[in-house]
């Protein structure tokens, strides 16, 4: 206990950056099949960390462990620890609902609720009791949509259904929806894979702005995207963390041959 505190103090003193998440010896199984092998990974606060690797390498599994979305899968079991601000999120005392309010998530395919744009954004704050009167909701909706860069486009039609927006707008609406709960971390699971290049560029710029306030973890298949938006990159292969480091270093001077092969496109 004292050790952890000392360690944290130590880290805060030594650098402005602090580890938000710390995964230690993380093993994940789907029934008998092991999906992740002994992952050790620190995710720094107010940085963008990208998880890359070929399909089936376990990067999405790791992402879904970070807010315990894997809980809904009955056959999934987790060993080892993931600490969020020093507290193990797989502890018995942890309230998953509270955890997910602190850790927002944006999915591969935009999934706005079949409600109005306004209600989509107000949904999270409402269920977490952040709204006492109508003006609170109005304010949260406006600031969230502004942060997600969608306000100018939708401010005159907040009552229109969220499903009527274009794909890129829908994805930004989903980001606004996640921001509205005021999370500390935002997890993104290939957020641009269903979008065209222009919408992708807008989202990438948005991610860059969002890291001022949030810690961001992004799974992506696009190496260019990882290079553009992230400060740290983790390369996974067959359920193992092969290499983890500064994005610049990973893309210019990878230490591992597998990483080198993958980022230069020589892989698979």
């Amino acid at each position: 206990m004292i050790n952890t505190l000392l360690e944290e103090n130590h880290m805060q003193e030594n650098s402005i950056l602090r580890a938000k998440y710390a995964a230690k010896n993380l093993d994940v199984y789907y029934a008998d099949k092991q999906a992740l092998f002994g992952i050790n990974l620190d995710i720094m606060e107010n940085q963008v960390t990208s998880l890359i690797g070929p399909s089936g390498c376990g990067k999405s599994t790791l992402l879904r462990c970070l807010n315990r979305m894997n809980d809904v899968i009955d056959i999934c079991s987790v060993k080892g620890s993931i600490r969020l601000d020093g507290q193990d999120i797989y502890d018995d005392g942890i309230d998953v609902v509270e955890l997910r309010a602190r850790v927002g998530m944006v999915f591969q395919k935009p999934n706005p609720f079949p409600k109005s744009i306004y209600d989509n954004v107000a949904y999270g704050p409402k269920i977490h009791g952040m709204i006492d009167q109508k003006s609170d909701a109005d304010e949260i909706v406006e600031t969230s949509l502004k942060k997600a860069g969608l306000w100018q486009e939708v401010k005159d039609r907040l009552a229109a259904p969220g499903t009527g927006l274009s794909g890129g707008q829908q994805q930004r609406l989903c980001i606004a929806r996640a921001i509205a709960v005021n999370p500390e971390v935002i997890l993104m699971d290939e957020p641009c894979s269903a979008l065209d290049p222009i919408a992708t560029a807008i989202i990438e710029q948005l991610i860059d702005e969002l890291k001022q306030k949030f810690t961001i973890v992004i799974v992506t298949h696009s190496m260019q995207q990882a290079a553009r938006v992230s400060q740290k990159t983790a390369f996974f292969h067959l359920g193992s963390l092969v290499e983890f480091g500064d994005t610049d270093q990973i893309f210019t001077n990878p230490q591992n041959q597998q990483t080198q092969d993958y980022i230069t496109g020589r892989y698979g």
Partner: peptide
């Protein structure tokens, strides 16, 4: 009702019954 809506609601920290009441039933 697509699974992605259930996931989206759960990821926002909604409980199962909130998801059913506020997302699934209206849909």
């Amino acid at each position: 009702v697509p699974q992605t809506l259930r996931d989206g609601s759960a990821a926002l920290g909604a409980t199962k019954s909130e998801t059913i009441r506020l997302v699934l039933l209206p849909a």
